[in-house]
């Protein structure tokens, strides 16, 4: 059981990350990552929808027949997205305006439907909810990383306007590079594509180095056992 949970987490957060490896949900990822506050807002909304939809899909998995599986799942997701939309309108209206149509477009984030079909429809409710949480986190962390890089390079500051999401975080803005003239390209659409490309390259680089290190460890282990047997 514990091993299962660990496996789900490592798959969702790194090896099979919905955003970095499967390239799912690219539209919100690139569109809403121009600042940390937007990124966190959308990440929380996506996590909420993913956990709820995975839980509900898993609860009704024995009642739903194959023929109506996809429409049923899409409707469940659309229902939760509408809930999140209404919640944001009620409690964080200016953030709702700044994220714009990407809140309702969570419905078409293939990562969510993908998890519902490939995981929640086959597993028990609790573990499905956990899988939803981890997949959401994997997506959210990439969103946050991209948002932080773009905001830092674009404006030289971090966490601007965080009070839109959480009222107690006024004055959280950090000017990391005072007197920085700003680099508009990072905030414009081309910057999103560019930094996403660099992020993907960075992941490939890390994966390659880890693989090389593992190979070396195995080789040295094999080498030491070989010398032992010779002695």
């Amino acid at each position: 059981m514990k091993k299962d949970l660990k496996n789900i987490s490592s798959q969702a957060l790194w090896h099979n990350n919905p955003a970095l490896v499967q390239l799912l949900g690219l539209c919100p990822l690139l569109a809403v990552s121009s600042s940390v506050v937007n990124a966190v807002g959308l990440a929380l909304a996506t996590i909420m929808v993913l956990v709820c939809s995975n839980l509900l899909v898993s609860l009704i998995r024995h009642q739903v027949t194959d023929a109506i599986r996809l429409p049923a799942f899409v409707l469940i997701i659309a229902g939760f997205v509408t809930c999140v939309e209404l919640l944001l309108q009620a409690f964080a209206y200016s953030l709702y305006l700044s994220i714009g149509i990407f809140i309702p477009l969570i419905v078409t984030n293939c990562a969510i439907l993908g998890r519902a079909v490939s995981f929640a429809a086959k597993n028990t409710p609790l573990i499905s909810a956990f899988d939803g949480l981890m997949t959401g986190l994997g997506f959210g962390l990439v969103l946050l990383a991209l948002g932080a890089v773009r905001e830092l390079i674009g404006t030289g500051a971090l966490f601007a306007n965080m009070e839109l999401l959480l009222p107690f975080t006024e004055n959280w803005e950090l000017s990391i590079l005072p007197g920085y003239p700003g680099f508009l390209l990072a905030l414009l659409p081309p910057g999103a594509f560019l930094f996403m490309g660099l992020l993907l390259a960075l992941k490939n680089l890390i994966d390659k180095q880890v693989a090389e290190k593992d190979l070396k460890d195995i080789e040295s282990e094999l080498g030491s056992t070989a010398t032992h047997t010779q002695n």
Binding site: P190, F193, L194, M196, G197, L200, A201, N204, L205
Partner: peptide, 22 residues
């Protein structure tokens, strides 16, 4: 270059196209 192969270079190509469309 090896780390840029696949989706990464596609993203950077899209960035250049997006720049042109700006």
């Amino acid at each position: 270059p090896a780390p840029f192969q696949g989706a990464s270079i596609a993203m950077i190509t899209a960035a250049l196209m997006s720049l042109a469309f700006m």
